[in-house]
Amino acid sequence: MIVKLIIALLLLGIVASLFSSAFFLVKDDSQRKRTLSLLKLRVALSVTLIIFVLVAYTAGWLVPHGPQP
């Protein structure tokens, strides 16, 4: 259950970073590079999510399931 919670939090962080980056891209007129820093954060969160899912799968914390015959 904790693994699914971590995955959900990482996905929520990625989506929040996406929308805040889009907001700063449209509305921000300053010379601060907030859009770029949020892009870096989104990429880091995505890489972290992929690595975490791979580790959780190989450790047996995540078990794939599908339709049972």
Rank of each mutant, 00 (worst) to 15 (best):
L49F: 08
L54I: 09
G60M: 02
V53M: 14
L45T: 00
W61S: 00
S46E: 03
P69L: 04
L18G: 15
A16E: 14
G66F: 09
P69I: 00
H65P: 00
L25M: 09
L36M: 10
S46C: 02
K4H: 11
S20P: 04
K33D: 12
K40I: 08
L49V: 00
G13M: 06
Q68A: 12
F24Q: 07
L54P: 04
I6Y: 11
K4T: 03
V47G: 09
S30Y: 05
A16L: 13
F24V: 07
S17I: 04
D28M: 01
V43C: 07
I2E: 12
D29L: 07
L11S: 11
A8H: 12
K33M: 08
S46V: 00
S30F: 06
L18N: 13
F19L: 12
I2D: 14
G13W: 04
A44W: 02
A8W: 08
L11F: 06
I6C: 07
V55Q: 02
I6A: 10
A44Q: 11
W61D: 00
Q31H: 15
P69M: 03
A44L: 07
Y57E: 03
G66R: 05
L62M: 03
A59Q: 10
D28V: 01
L12S: 15
V15C: 03
L10I: 03
V15F: 06
I14G: 01
A44V: 01
K27L: 05
R34D: 14
K27R: 13
L9W: 12
I14Y: 01
L41E: 14
I7P: 02
G13V: 00
S17R: 00
V63L: 06
V63K: 08
S21R: 13
L10E: 10
S46I: 00
S37A: 14
Q31Y: 15
V43Q: 09
I50K: 06
L54N: 14
L5V: 08
L38S: 06
A22W: 11
Q68R: 09
F23Y: 15
L49G: 04
G66E: 08
G60W: 03
